[in-house]
């Protein structure tokens, strides 16, 4: 059973601490995990911007790099969804990689389980606002989205419930998009920023002391907005909380 961890390009460059934390958590849980070199990106950013063909070489490279692993853990809901949806374009290897690719929290919840996660002994006395990236939420089904009339579940909050002392901020709109949206953030800066500011206001109203998310991309956007406003709201990936890292 070989497990690979993939940290997308923007995590690698802008939030290496999240990837390091993710790796340490897996190692402490006894997972034999590798981080193969060879793939920097899954090709999602250009593809979502309408340049699927330009993104294809990156996805193909991703497939070639990860085809030998039984489980491919992606540290981003958005990237994991892209691989799951589009890797099958690259033959049997691609279809296999698509099927074996999972998002980080999903792996922790479904494969590791909450009991073993509790053994990490993570602790954080704080009230957290939880932001599940939209692709993680509605694309991968990490939690039940508010639109659907189905039994409620939330794998992210379940994972976070193993962090002692952590409470959750009550939000008016628990799963509204933060406004990042990849190229949308620079195509439509006014609406993108407004969406993010509205999320921050909701977190403020809920008394959030920190923001935790499945997706570093959303966090970079929200953190950039908060810092411009002069609002102090530490942002963390789920892995960083589990690893007990002190946030930046």
């Amino acid at each position: 059973m070989t497990v690979a961890l993939f940290a997308p390009c923007f995590v690698d460059q802008f939030r290496a601490s999240a990837a390091i934390a993710a790796l340490r958590v897996l190692e402490r849980l006894g997972v034999d995990v590798e981080v193969p070199s060879g793939a920097a990106c899954c090709g999602q950013p250009p593809a979502n911007a309408g340049f699927e063909d330009e993104g294809a070489p990156a996805l193909e490279r991703f497939v070639r790099t990860f085809r030998r692993y039984d489980t491919i853990i992606v540290l981003s809901g958005s990237c994991a969804l892209h691989v799951r949806m589009h890797a099958a374009a690259f033959g049997d290897d691609g279809a296999g990689v698509a099927a074996r690719t999972t998002e980080y929290c999903t792996y922790l919840h479904d494969v590791i389980g909450l009991d073993r996660l509790s053994s990490l002994g993570a602790e954080r006395n704080a009230r957290a606002a939880v932001h599940i990236g939209c692709h993680a939420l509605r694309g991968l089904g990490l939690a039940s989205p508010s639109e659907l009339q189905e039994p409620r579940y939330d794998r992210v909050r379940a994972v976070l419930s193993t962090v002692r002392g952590l409470t959750f901020a009550d939000l008016d709109r628990p799963d509204e998009c933060c406004g990042f949206g990849g190229s949308f953030s620079v195509d439509e800066p006014a609406v993108s920023a407004r969406m993010g500011l509205d999320r921050l206001a909701d977190y403020g109203k809920g008394g959030a002391e920190l923001l935790v998310s499945t997706d570093v991309s959303c966090l970079l956007h929200l953190d950039g907005l908060a810092r411009r406003l002069g609002v102090s709201l530490p942002v963390m990936h789920v892995a960083e909380l589990l690893a007990g890292e002190v946030s930046a």
């Binding site: 939030r15 290496a16 601490s17 920097a40 953030s185 993010g196 810092r227």
Partner: peptide
């Protein structure tokens, strides 16, 4: 590109060392 990003937001700080380099 950068202008569109930083009109409303601070630019993200690059990590001192990339994950790849750290690994």
């Amino acid at each position: 590109f950068a202008g569109a990003w930083t009109k409303h937001r601070e630019a993200p700080e690059p990590s001192p060392q990339s994950f790849r380099a750290w690994y």
